[in-house]
Simulated assay, not measured.
Amino acid sequence: MLSIEEILKKEIVYKIDNMENVNVKKNMIYKEELLMDLYTPFAHGKSEKLPVVILIHGEAAAINFKESGQYISYGKLIAASGLNAVTFNHKVLSDGFSIKEVIDDIDALVNYLIENADNLNIDKDKIAIWSFSGGVPFGLYEGMHDCSNYIKCNIAYYGFGDLTSVKKLLNFNIQDEDVTKYSPISLIDENSSKIPPLFIARAGLDNSIINESIDKFIMKALKNNLTIDICNHSTGGHAFDLFNDNDRTREIITETLNFLKRNLK
């Protein structure tokens, strides 16, 4: 079994040319002492504002996620694919913070990018959210709760469609009223005509509580006729993009990049 240190060093199994030839502006303060990194394509014109993909990390206490191999390699992959990428650290439930505090950090990051779009050379009207694992309910919520014109699509990898399941599996001491209020599945009926396109990737061999949560979210999304792409990795476990080095993993990540390009064009 790998140690936490070894897991944090692992990069995604998918690679393309020129991933090392990207620009990275590191440790920008977006809120108080919280930091973000901006990955940009190496050769794009200075006057051209490109879309931006925000990568939302999962749950673990006292981890500098944006410096992990997973998020560094995703930042490079997205930039090498011709888009901007942002990795950042936000508060987590694992450190005892509330659901609202986590959401406030993500809101602050999105607002920072919008307000500083000219200085950062990004197209504020073409934002995508790509979230992972325990970060998925927060990423989905961010793209669904106000349905602004800024966020054009929302990607969720092997994560929860509701916060009830988060509480059940991870035993967090979070308030029931917050679980109900901020669960993304509860927003489908409310905002179904305005929710931007969704891409959901599930790991077939993942924890049953996680997959039941994903499946309920998918079924409700289909019932409400949302635009949704679904990829199942039948032999993949949690974090298949790190641990399942096979064709299906590469297919899913390729489809994800194509989804981004279609919706951010």
Score class of each variant (00 low, 15 high):
Leu2Cys: 12
Leu2Tyr: 14
Ile4Cys: 11
Leu8Arg: 08
Glu11Leu: 01
Ile16Thr: 15
Ile16Tyr: 02
Ile16Cys: 05
Met19Asn: 06
Asn23Cys: 13
Lys25Asn: 14
Asn27Cys: 08
Met28Ala: 08
Lys31Pro: 03
Met36Ile: 08
Pro41Arg: 05
Pro41Glu: 01
Ala43Gly: 09
Ala43Ile: 14
Gly45Thr: 13
Ser47Pro: 00
Glu48Asn: 14
Leu50Tyr: 00
Val52Tyr: 00
Val53Phe: 05
Ile54Val: 15
Ile56Ser: 02
Gly58His: 07
Ala62Ser: 15
Ala62Val: 10
Ile63Met: 10
Asn64Asp: 12
Asn64Leu: 09
Gly69Met: 03
Gln70Asp: 08
Lys76Gln: 14
Ile78Ala: 01
Ala80Arg: 13
Ser81His: 07
Gly82Trp: 09
Ala85Glu: 04
Val86Gln: 02
Thr87Glu: 09
Leu93Tyr: 01
Gly96Glu: 00
Asp105Arg: 09
Asp105Met: 05
Asp107Arg: 15
Val110Phe: 08
Tyr112Val: 03
Tyr112Cys: 00
Ile122Tyr: 06
Asp123Pro: 04
Lys126Trp: 01
Ser131Lys: 06
Phe132Arg: 00
Phe132Gln: 10
Phe132Thr: 11
Ser133Met: 06
Ser133Asp: 10
Gly134Trp: 01
Pro137Trp: 03
Phe138Gly: 10
Tyr141Asp: 09
Glu142Val: 02
Gly143Tyr: 00
Gly143Asn: 04
Ser148Glu: 08
Tyr150Met: 08
Ile155Met: 04
Gly159Leu: 05
Leu170Thr: 02
Phe172Asn: 04
Gln175Pro: 07
Lys181His: 03
Ser186His: 13
Ile188Val: 09
Ile188His: 03
Glu190Gln: 15
Leu198Met: 04
Arg202Met: 12
Ala203Val: 07
Ala203Asn: 06
Ala203Thr: 11
Leu205Arg: 15
Asp206Pro: 01
Asn207Ala: 01
Ser208Arg: 14
Ile209Asp: 09
Ile209Gly: 07
Ile210Thr: 05
Glu212Met: 10
Glu212Phe: 04
Lys216Met: 09
Leu222Ser: 13
Asn225His: 14
Leu226Lys: 05
Leu226Trp: 04
Thr227Asn: 15
Thr227Trp: 01
Thr235Trp: 15
His238Ser: 00
Asn244Tyr: 07
Glu251Gln: 15
Thr254Phe: 12
Thr256His: 05
Leu260Asp: 02
Asn263Tyr: 09
Leu264His: 01
Lys265Tyr: 12
